[in-house]
Amino acid sequence: MSENVRQPYNESKKMEIFDREFLPHIRSMYNFAYRLTFDEDDANDLVQETYMKAFRFINSFQEGTNAKAWLFRILKNSFINDFRKKSKEPAKVDYQEVETFYNSDDVDEHITTDLRVETVQDMIGDEVSNALNSLAIDFRTVIILCDLEGFTYEEMAKILDIPIGTVRSRLHRARNLLKDKLKEYANSMGYR
């Protein structure tokens, strides 16, 4: 964090960076928090906590660099380290195990090739949201970061503290799982 030789910001500079670089991302941050916690109050608390931390550690933020990714990383870490312990979110799944399972060769592609483009396009928001929300949190997270927030794989690797290769394989698995869920919805609604 302190490899850059840089003067710490003074108080008015801190406020300026906070207002200009951090606050504009608050809606994305709140929506990310909500999609992790599924609870408005928890999301509200998580965002407040994240912004307080961002301010406290503002000297390790370099002006003009990617504030959104920096903030998302703090939010994700706050959620994992502090928040999930307090909330009612069910016990943590062993993602390593899940990932190993899904990375094994027997599970792959074309499981859901019978899902039709028109079927997907006809789905309503609730169906799509429910399918996404039903995914385990690590899989849900990569789809949120990539598809909803538009982060690059490299940015996602930094936010999640994992190698790019893992980002890509996790995204691949997440998308296959999402397709399975969409297919289940389609079947239950009698779509073909």
Binding site: S28, Y34, N44, V120, Q121, M123, G125, V128, S129, R175
Partner: peptide, 16 residues
Amino acid sequence: AIKQTLQAKIDNRPIP
């Protein structure tokens, strides 16, 4: 289509 559907149909909530 899936990516576009996610982007188009999942609403962003307003901040409290």
